[in-house]
Amino acid sequence: MLKAHPLAATLTERLAEPPGDALSLFWLGQAGFVIDGQKRRVVIDPYLSNSLGEKYQDTRFPHLRMMPIPIAPRDIPHVDIVLATHAHTDHLDPDTLQDLLRANPRAVLVAPKSARDLALTRSQIAQSRLHLIEAHETLNLAGVQITALRAAHEGLELDAEGLHKFLGLAVTIAGRVVFHSGDTIPFDGQSTEVASLHADLGLFPVNGRDAVRKSNGVPGNMTIAEAVTLAQNAHISTVIAHHFGLFAFNSVEREEIEKVATAARDVYLYPAKTGAEYRFLSE
């Protein structure tokens, strides 16, 4: 069983420590997580800037932060791998990636093959530090296994070369499989694909979707109930719900997640929170 342990220090102070052997996770807000284990550190989908607030100021959806930036990207050391599930800026953010990768010169970036050029431009790293992945492919980097599955951010979109634009990424580390679904809604075949991972933990977005957001170019995600259903069908007993609490127009109340969590059967559902370290009790 997973448990959220309150941090005894700031997140910056905690992450200054090298990663240990046991699995630990830290939420960075939105879809971002730090995943530690087997003395490796993986960062996935970090958005630790205000680049979208600057881009969309004075628009209908101004992207004002509801929560502060929990840690500066340059203050996350010991990083081996940075993962991006897709090319949207809150998952592949230049202001975050450049500082994070400069502070960790040995770290590599993993991005979808469909986002190759954008990943190089936004990260400003040498091509040798970029590793590309497509759905149903697996990479082994620094002793960590990364497997990509399809994701549908409103739809299963392909680029002109037939490459998937949106991915879910499974990280096998410290003897466990952590599956970050990426931004996605349910789609045919999803449960079977995810079940094949035999994941111990799911990191699922729960901000939902509606016609207003979609008509204004804001693609949606699973609802809380859909996230629970995916976990049940894919035999994932534990889920951390995320992608809420950052932008008011694209969020869901924590109380709604907690209400569904209380009623969920066969799934432990945790609304993500900063200021906590997630560890399995056996560890």
Results as ranks from 00 to 15, higher is better:
D266K: 05
V43T: 08
G208W: 07
T59S: 14
D93W: 08
V177T: 15
H198Q: 11
Y270L: 11
P18L: 07
A195N: 03
R102C: 03
E134P: 01
A31K: 00
A22I: 07
E193L: 06
V110S: 09
M222I: 02
L169P: 04
R122E: 07
K214M: 06
Q98E: 06
H136E: 13
H153V: 04
R265W: 03
I125Q: 11
A16H: 13
L201W: 09
D58A: 11
T121E: 15
T223D: 05
I76S: 04
F244N: 02
N140L: 14
T12Q: 14
L97Q: 06
T274D: 00
L169V: 05
L169M: 12
S51F: 05
P62D: 06
A199D: 03
T274Q: 09
A148Q: 05
T59L: 03
T147Q: 11
L100P: 05
E157Q: 14
E255D: 15
A87D: 13
V252R: 05
G143Y: 14
E54V: 03
M67N: 11
Q127H: 12
P205I: 00
Q232T: 08
I185A: 07
A107T: 02
N104F: 06
T10R: 04
L23K: 07
E157G: 01
L130I: 14
A9C: 13
L132H: 12
L197C: 10
E161H: 15
H86L: 04
T138R: 15
Y278P: 09
N140T: 14
G53C: 01
I236K: 11
A8E: 15
L92P: 10
I240R: 13
L118N: 01
L48D: 10
E154H: 12
V82G: 08
H63D: 09
F204M: 03
I224A: 07
P219N: 14
